[in-house]
Simulated assay, not measured.
Amino acid sequence: MLRIGLFLGTNIAILVLFSIIFKVLGLEQYLAAQGVQGNLTGLLIMCGIFGFAGSFISLLISKWMAKRSTGVQLIDQPRTPEERWLKETVADLAKKAGIGMPEVGIFPAQQSNAFATGWNRNDALVAVSAGLMQRFDREEVRAVLAHEIGHVANGDMVTLSLIQGVLNTFVMFFARILGSIIDRAVFKNNSGHGIGYFMIVMVLQVVLGIFASMIVMWFSRWREFRADASGAHLASRGAMISALQRLQEETQAHVPNQMPDTLTAFGISSGWKEHASRLFMTHPPLSERIETLRRGG
């Protein structure tokens, strides 16, 4: 539940920050003076600007943040046969997927995991954990890399940012519409938006933000099935299933997840227990992913 709280808290904190900016810049007062009901287009545009701003800024700096938060050691010039194999494998998979060569790196975590991030499919980063390199055989590592290349080729990072931007926009928009209605009906404030309106908007953004997060989590789970299918296509179905089974063994053995919470959604495994609340899971249960691959999905 800690990761659920951190994920929701981060998104809600962003919305609260934007609300404070609205207040400081006087945008709330301006819209109130114009009449909310008569300026819905202006309000929607304003919410859209702020709603998408944070999402796309996060996307643009995603590689930089990933490198700093995980301590990724990039492989520019391979120093060992293992590093050479890793970079050559990524190059081969990227060529098959029709994307540009990503940056390749290893991050110091004992949990078996990997992630891909970047602002577009031709400027991505693919990194694997030291633990995965130590415990997985090469066919399984190749399947994991193919899964991550699948995320890049499918444009999952950009799509996730677009979805988050749209949801942020409508959370901010409807929180203000409902806040204005409640402020007028309950507090009889017809002269403008006072402190009551501001507090109502904060509460509504928390509530609506939780529902919006459920939609983001649903998309995150769906894209894992797509990335698994890509991994099976680029590597092999048997190797992809074997890699997921090994990840499942580590999950059942309670190997701690050392991936930063900001990157959990981008890893091949979230490290969450099977009984975590499904509505807030970034990844489907590994058992479901394995069964889907076995059925040919």
Rank of each mutant, 00 (worst) to 15 (best):
L2N: 14
R3Y: 01
F7K: 15
I14M: 09
F18Q: 15
G26R: 08
Y30I: 15
Q37P: 04
T41G: 09
L44C: 10
I45F: 11
I45W: 15
G54S: 10
S55Q: 06
F56L: 10
L59P: 06
S62C: 06
M65R: 11
R68S: 13
R68V: 14
T70Y: 00
V72A: 10
Q73G: 09
Q73W: 02
D76F: 11
D76T: 08
Q77M: 13
R79C: 02
R84W: 06
L86F: 02
K87M: 05
K87Q: 08
T89P: 04
V90L: 08
V104W: 00
I106C: 01
P108F: 10
A109K: 04
S112Y: 00
F115I: 04
T117Y: 05
N120V: 05
R121Q: 06
N122L: 00
N122I: 03
V126L: 10
V126G: 06
V128R: 08
L132W: 12
E140H: 00
V141M: 13
R142A: 04
R142F: 00
A146C: 01
E148A: 04
H151Y: 03
A153D: 01
N154M: 14
L160E: 11
S161G: 02
G165S: 03
V166W: 05
V166R: 03
N168Y: 14
N168V: 05
R176W: 02
I181L: 06
D183M: 06
R184M: 13
F187I: 02
N190T: 10
I195N: 12
M199Q: 11
V207K: 07
V207I: 13
I210V: 15
I210C: 07
S213C: 13
M214I: 05
W222D: 15
R226H: 11
A232S: 13
S236G: 00
I241S: 02
E250T: 03
E250F: 09
P256F: 07
L263A: 10
A265V: 11
I268V: 15
S269D: 11
W272R: 10
S277G: 08
S287W: 02
R289T: 03
I290S: 03
L293I: 07
R295N: 14
